[in-house]
Structure formats: structure tokens, C-alpha cells
Design a protein around this nucleic acid. Sequence first.
RNA 1: GCGGACAUAGUGUAGUGGUUAGCACGCAAGCUUCCCAAGCUUGCAACCCGGGUUCAAAUCCCGGUGUCCGCACCA
Length: 502
Amino acid sequence: MDSETLMATFLRRGILWPTAEIYGGIQGFYDYGDAGGAIKRNLESAWDRWFVGLSPGYYRIEPAEVLPEAVLRASGHLANFADPLVTCDSCNERFRADTLLEEWGEKDVEGLRVEDLQARISQINKKCPKCGRGKISPPKAFNLMFGVDVGTEGRERAYLRPETAQSSYLAFSRLWNVMRKKLPLGVAVVGKAYRNEIAPRQVLFRMRAFTQAELQIFFDPEEPAASWKLPVDAKLPVLTARRRARGDTEHLLTPASELVASGEMPEFYAYHLYMSYLFYRDILGYPERSLRLFEKNEKERAFYNRIQYDIELKLESLGGFKEMGAVHYRGDYDLSRHSEGSKSDLGVTLDGGKHLLPHVLELTFGIDRNIWGLADVHLHKDQDRTFWSLPSYLSPLVAGVLPLIPKEHGALANSLYQSLRSEGFRVTIDEAGSVGRRYARLDEVGVPFAVTVDRDSLTNGTFTLRARDAKTQQRLSLPEIILELRRASVSPVPSSVGPTAP
RNA sequence: GCGGACAUAGUGUAGUGGUUAGCACGCAAGCUUCCCAAGCUUGCAACCCGGGUUCAAAUCCCGGUGUCCGCACCA
């Protein structure tokens, strides 16, 4: 689906719109509407069922969105997320002020304040290293974090979290005790993160407030869980850094066992990469050919990541592969930084006396961009209608109830609607316009079923159940319909696809 | 942030100084209709914001905001 049609559909159907739209909006912020919000919640819950469901030792927490400065100092965000930038006034090239000074041979520039950097730069007064002509502008602090002042006098410096992961690291020590001291321990967070992006763009792809779903798995690298075993036939569509370095640009569906045997990645990593891939392929229904696992090389990935594959989806609307999620092997970076920063030992002692600082494997997903992805991949237009073939458990509603002739079937339709609601289904009732028009309205927001009440319904209590994609109908009784809708409402869990949990 | 383009009903658009601001889809009410955006009737709904030029501005100029494209950024 092209991005214009996609966005027009989103706006027209109230999936989402710019925040504070009537005031002209605010760059990088969007609000979800009723259907959009429902899809988002369903996606989050499908994610939860899949990833938190990977093991009984995995838990989901709901932490605060504001973090004290000390946390972000320890995590490295304060230093790395607030670059003082300078610009060449001739060629417009941009540099980090501190690295530019280092390039000029200056010493001890690490951690200088913006004013000091400014003084040093104007003192040296060299030309732009790129074009050799331009003058370098005074440095400007670009803090990519939103600061908040806590307390009525704003004495305490804090920030909106720039990623949800930190909250999981902070919770580790308590959960270690609460969850009875076992590794691996998984701590999931689904929630908002905030980044003051320089140039937010492409709607749901670079937002300043966005939702992440992240699972941090704390484990013993010397003894990964026994259950982290790949199915024998597991294949991964990888583009490894090694092959990229040779100039290859195409991903290859490679047996996971081969990647492990050749030392490309350890099995615990391959297992989680595979489970993440399955989530996209089987739960979100992204076509196999549109997915690839793109390894970031040493230069591209964050310095603390030992292995990083981005899970990328080929999007027609954005003209290429885009990152939808990632699997990061972060080693013991996080717990060691927070041990140091908080002056508390986050190491653990296992049953048997072994002491270690657990390593972290991070599975991270952008919820909003996947809503865009679901539309890009599943929103179809044929000659006479637009239909969104969303996986049924992600749909905002499981069914619409339609009286064929409202005057004649309205009353029965209403009681059917009430019955389905009391069964716990998300349903709507629509009596306005021709039945074809009403089908089309449901199709466009991805509702998988329409239950139509007709003449026969009045006499024998059966209804037609119409499927969104094929437009086929079958005549069923209420209990049969309930069974069908029940099945459609539930997203798959790992045991039904992958290996079983410990 | 820089450079360029753009901004008209809910959506897509027409309108280059004087228009009752047009069209399509949509939406609402009614009629019709036993199954896929059908038809008929009636109705709803717009010039991004703020200044300026002009007798007169959706239209020209300036500023802002937002969107898109390229560059940069994306720990």
C-alpha cells in the first residue's frame, strides 16, 4: 500500500491523527482513535502472549515513565544522548563539538560544558574540516531527552525515559527476590518512551512519543536455558555483517543450525532471533519474502551490543526495508553500569553457590511502526473496495452485526448484538445504508467477520457469517458463531508453534 | 537543524486578485432494497495560523506552524 492511500485511510477512519490537530499539530506526536487504539492494544497483547509466554519465568511490569537523572547518567544516555553540535556556515556540515575539538588536537574535551566548548572553538578558530572555507558555528546542545523538573520548585532533575529497557534493569534486583531467584529471568515492559528527535518524520516511524515493547532476559551466559533449542528445520533470512562486508546485499534463508555451527551466533541468540522472526511472520502475518534479519556491524551498532540484528520489513509505503524490531546481546553492560551507578551489587548467587552478573538479551519492538507495517502489508485495494486483512486477533472488532433490512431485522439484530457483547466480544452494529456499504465499512478497518440477520434468522435462529477477505458466507447458529468468533479473537502462543517452555 | 516543494469540507481534489469557493467520494435523514460502496430525494461540511499590500486576497508579500523530499541526525 502506498503511503498516501494509507494515511488517507487512517485519517478518514480515525485510526490516528496529529496531536493537537486543531492548533496545527505538534511535530512528532500522534493520537490514536478508537479503532487505532484497539489495534494497538491487541498488538500489545499478542506480543505479550508470545514473548512473555516464552517462559513461566518471564514477567511484565508497568514502570513509571519518569526517571531520575542518576539512572540516565549511569546508563550513558546523559553523555551520549545530548550532543553539542556545531555547523559549518558554508557547507552546512554538522559535527559533534567535542569530536571536532579532538580532531583539532585538543586534549581533555570529554565532558566539557557547552560554554567551555564554545570558548575553545572560538579560541582556535579553525575552518571547517570538510570544505575548508566555512566558519564553525557556536555549539548548540541537542538533548534528545525531554527533561522534567520534579517537585514544585523543580529541584530534582529528571527525564522522560528515552527507552523502556532501563526500567527493567532497575527492577532486576527486586524481581530476582520476588520471583524466587531463578535464571533466566525475563522482564518485559510495554509502554511509552520519549525522544526529542531532531527531525521526526514518516508519521509512525520517527515519533517523539512512541510505544516500545521490550523483553529483557537476564541469564547466565555460561549456562543458557535448556529450553533455548532451535527446531531442527529453523531457517533465518539473514544478511550477516560478514556477507555485507563482502558486498552482498541480499538476505539468504539460512538454516539456523548452520549459523550456530559456523560461529556466526551462539544458539541462545539464534533461538531468540528465530522466535522474534516467527512473531513477525506468523503472528503479524508479514510475508516471508518481505522480512530480513539485518546484522549491524561493529561500527553501526551501539558499543555495548555484542550482537545486533535488526528485524526489517520491506515496506512499499516507505520504499524499502525498515527496522521493526531488534535482538541485542548486551552482555553485562547494563547491570554493571547500574551496579556502579547505584552503588549496589546487582550480582546474584545461584543455587549451588555460583556468583555472577547476569547478561542481558534484549528483544525490542516498535509498536507504532508495526501498526504502520500491518497497514502497509495487509491493507488492500481491489476494484470496488479497500479491505484490511489484519490477523483477526488484531482487528479492532471481531464482528459487525448487520440487519439485512433494518426495519424487519433490526430488533433481532439488536438482541444478537447484546448477546455477543455479553459473551465478551468486541462487536458493533450497523443499520445505515445498503448491506454492501456496511460490509465495506467493516472491511476497511479490518473487521474479520460480519454477522448478517435475514429472513431465515427470524424463523430458524441462524445467521450468515461473512468472511472479510474471501467475502464468502456460511449459515450458522448462534453457538457456532460464538465458537468461530472465540477462535478468531485469540492470538497464538509459542508452545503452539515453537519448542515448549521449561 | 539546513535546502527545496506544498497547505482548500471527514478524504481526494478544482479554483492565479472580484466565484453563491466547484467536483467526487463520504457522512446524516428519508424512500427503496433478501446480501457486497446500487438507485432516488433532501441535507451537512473547507480556503492552516498571524500580519501586510490592495477599493478588493483562497489567490500577491512577510512571519509562524505543519506535511513531504534531499542532507544531517537516529546513543
